[in-house]
């Protein structure tokens, strides 16, 4: 793999990571604390149930 291609792929991965971080931050803003998926205070099972209940 050439150095130029490596740079292009690396920058693509960086952009993807930045987008995912931004998305996760925006989600957290809407559901701060244990409403968010990143909170470790509530078990994943409970979160699955809560997500299911949120669906109309």
């Amino acid at each position: 793999m050439s150095a130029t291609l490596q740079t292009a792929v690396a920058l693509g991965i960086v952009a993807l990571a930045a987008i995912l971080l931004l998305r996760s931050w925006l989600k957290k803003r809407h559901q701060p604390g244990c409403g968010s998926e990143s909170c470790s205070a509530v078990s994943p099972e409970i979160k699955k149930i809560q997500a299911k209940l949120r669906k109309p």
Binding site: M1, S2, A3, L5, Q6, V9, A10, L11, I13, V14
Partner: peptide, 10 residues
């Protein structure tokens, strides 16, 4: 296994 470059460093 990887040649030097940005992806390897990443």
């Amino acid at each position: 296994v990887m040649p030097p470059g940005d992806l390897r460093d990443l």
